[in-house]
Design a protein around this nucleic acid. Structure first.
Lengths: 162, 162
DNA sequence: TTGCTCCTCACGTCACGTGAGGTGGC
DNA sequence: TTGCTCCTCACGTCACGTGAGGTGGC
């Protein structure tokens, strides 16, 4: 009933391949404390990851690759979230509604900040797309003119190959 | 009539401020050959930029910041375009329709490749946005439950401040 | 037992950041 | 003349890349 699913351990090489990074990147993020200090691995033994760890890692990668955040900024965010996780432990034991309220509001602020950044980048991308599309129209127009010009100047058709 | 506008020279500091980068970045891009080798500056004298130079620089910055391209990849693109610019000089003088056709088609390929990349990133951002929005809904739901719970358990209202 | 993947140093690299020390134009 | 911005080295840093040399599990 309330039995927890076996957390499906995955090794670092498979994780790296799934997320499109190298194992070095994952180790570096761990070194910076970005991977929740889980597992308590004994030195020299293999790193093992659950699906939750992978989701966490993917979020870090998106914050970096899609939103352009520095790892320092992401670490700061993570420390916020870690404080949240620490308090969540108390959540189960001794609630204290005032604390819960505080935690939930902080979590909301973080997510809304990330949503803001996503929208900023979407806007910038859309603007860039517009300029590229305009350039494409111009090029296509020139190509049409070229085809028409060479057709009227001479009997040679526009070169189709090579 | 066909008089060219004075190219409105701007110094590196103003350019950097407008584009939100440091002067070091601009000098580094020049060092890599990303800024079209224009101006033929005498060593030690000030760098001066036209609006066209700024537009070029902004494109490089967008390729890097929005599409995540490495400077090496951007340099490769730039070499394509430079070959295009070289051939464009011939464009005016001695056309040769076959060459023109080739140039236009290459330009079209570059722009379409960039548009593809823009769309890939837009898709990834939209996916990320969806997940963040789902998380936000979950947090808000918890907050509502918390407010309702504390209202029924006791007479204390949910703490509104701090 | 044999590969294969993993491990820990540790140095290299890319894309700039950050002064040091000096020169040039309103 | 006095600031201010610019210049050229040149070393530092961030986020990994890339071996070297060795250990552990199907």
């Amino acid at each position: 009933m309330t039995i927890v699913e076996a957390p499906a351990v995955i090794r670092i090489g498979a994780v790296a391949e799934r997320l499109g990074v190298t194992t070095r990147t994952i180790r570096y993020y761990e070194e910076l404390g970005l991977l929740g200090s889980g597992s308590k691995r004994s030195k020299g033994s293999h790193r093992l990851y659950s699906e939750a760890d992978i989701a966490r890692l993917q979020e870090v990668l998106r914050l970096r690759n899609l939103l352009g955040m520095s790892l320092e900024e992401i670490v700061a965010l993570a420390e916020f979230e870690e404080a949240r996780a620490d308090l969540r432990a108390q959540w189960e034991g001794d609630p204290s509604d005032a604390e819960r309220w505080c935690i939930v509001n902080q979590a909301l602020q973080i997510v809304e900040r990330e949503l803001e950044l996503v929208q900023t980048h979407q806007k910038a991308l859309t603007e860039f797309e517009g300029e590229l599309a305009a350039r494409r129209r111009l090029i296509k127009k020139r190509r049409r003119e070229l085809a028409a010009g060479s057709a009227e100047e001479a009997a040679t058709a526009p070169p189709a190959g090579a």
